[in-house]
Design a protein around this nucleic acid. Structure first.
Lengths: 235, 235
DNA sequence: TTCATACTTCGATCATAATCGAATTGTCTT
DNA sequence: AAGACAATTCGATTATGATCGAAGTATGAA
């Protein structure tokens, strides 16, 4: 020691200080799955006001733990990289054993991975699979951060009962791409995604699980997805 | 959502808060090499008064990050386990690279990057290179977050004088992967990593640099690494 | 356009905790 | 024994930063 001034790395202090706040931890843990979440949802997750959340999120981005991206008036945040997730897990590892993670919780988590609503549209394994299928059938195609609905797609979806409401492709946020945390792939969002999802509930192909964003594919749905879209292996 | 109260784990918050203090970080980093140090020395390392240090150390022990032991009128502290070291290194990995102040500092940093002990095992360029070589020689192989010691590996290491102590592969944390902040690669940790490192010091292939976690490869070691493991370019 | 929503900035309040001086306990040395 | 040293406890000070209300900006919807 002696001459050694191991006051090394103000950096690691900064990082640890950044992590060492209850509200910020709550947000970070919410993001641990890899999903992007908007500021508002993170505020709710941490049970703090939007102002406070904004302040925290700014710090987390400046500290290099998060990155952000605008989607319209929403600002989405996600972990800056796998190292961040790794560090959080390493901290979990020395945190005293968690208060009884119930089996029910684990089940709910599995359900969330499989299918869930993301606000108003469909996400999870099913959301991604359906989106893939729509692309495969050339009903939609990628275009920057959006999807474009093809003429064939428009006809097909209208026939299916979706309120496509006029304009085919170019309106802003008509058919957004939304990054899926569980699948790490994009699924269909935007007003078209919402309308399609609405229709799926209407047809009772899908139903909500109680008290959750998770979604179940019904008997009818399983058949329907196969017959209408050639989507097998659903459930 | 809704019924979901993601105010999860006050534990991890506590741990991160504990780590997120400049003085405590300084002490923890001083202990990263795996040594036990008395309170007074830790106070000097953190450049704070003994009173303040005492307060911090009490908290670190209560938080489970350190353990203490009396030796006469001195009280020695050391890291509570390899998980703590692992978490600290994981934090280092996301800490932005430091602005190097002095030449001496740069030298010390280089030494740390080259070879250092991480609690009880070997890290840095050499730690990673050796781990790579062991994989190349099929003495160990990756398996999730662990390594598995092959039968050939077991024989080789026993012949080399490492106390492999029975069970070959499956024990928990027997051969952990540990993310290296300087190399951004994995190196061998766990009890096997510790045993191997112990043997390397025993053979005097490695020696500690004074006042540091840094490690030097000796003359004998340079030859040894080349002959036994085909590890060239050491140094 | 007007209205609602999502987020940010500013300012003030308030609680937490890091810090050290002073005094105390316990241990080692002489 | 006395004196020095190591660590701790207590108390007071102080600075940092988390928090939210109020107001402002930007986007989307009607």
């Amino acid at each position: 020691m002696s001459s050694n001034n191991p006051n090394t790395n103000p950096n690691i202090t900064e990082i640890a200080t950044l992590i060492g706040d209850p509200s910020r931890i709550a947000m970070l843990i919410s993001l641990l799955g890899g999903k992007s979440l908007p500021a508002g949802e993170l505020a709710r997750a941490a049970q703090i006001s939007p102002q406070t959340a904004s302040s925290h999120l700014t710090k987390l981005v400046e500290g290099g733990l998060l990155v952000s991206e605008y989607y319209g008036r929403h600002k989405y945040f996600r972990l800056a990289g796998s190292e961040v997730a790794h560090a959080l897990e390493a901290l979990q590892a020395i945190a005293p054993s968690k208060p009884v993670r119930s089996l029910r919780e684990s089940d709910r988590l599995k359900a969330l991975h499989f299918a869930r609503t993301c606000y108003d549209h469909l996400a999870g394994k099913i959301g991604v699979a359906l989106t893939d299928k729509l692309m495969e059938l050339k009903l939609i195609e990628q275009s920057g951060k959006d999807f474009i609905l093809s003429e064939a797609g428009r006809k097909k979806l209208i026939a299916f009962g979706v309120e496509v409401d006029g304009t085919t492709g170019t309106r802003r946020h008509f058919a957004r791409q939304c990054l899926d945390w569980s699948e790490r792939r994009h699924h269909l969002a935007g007003s078209l995604g919402a309308a399609l999802t609405r229709r799926l509930f209407e047809l009772k192909w899908l139903e909500h699980l109680p008290d959750s964003r998770a979604v179940r594919v019904t008997e009818v749905g399983t058949r329907g997805f196969a017959e209408e879209f050639g989507l097998m292996d659903i459930q």
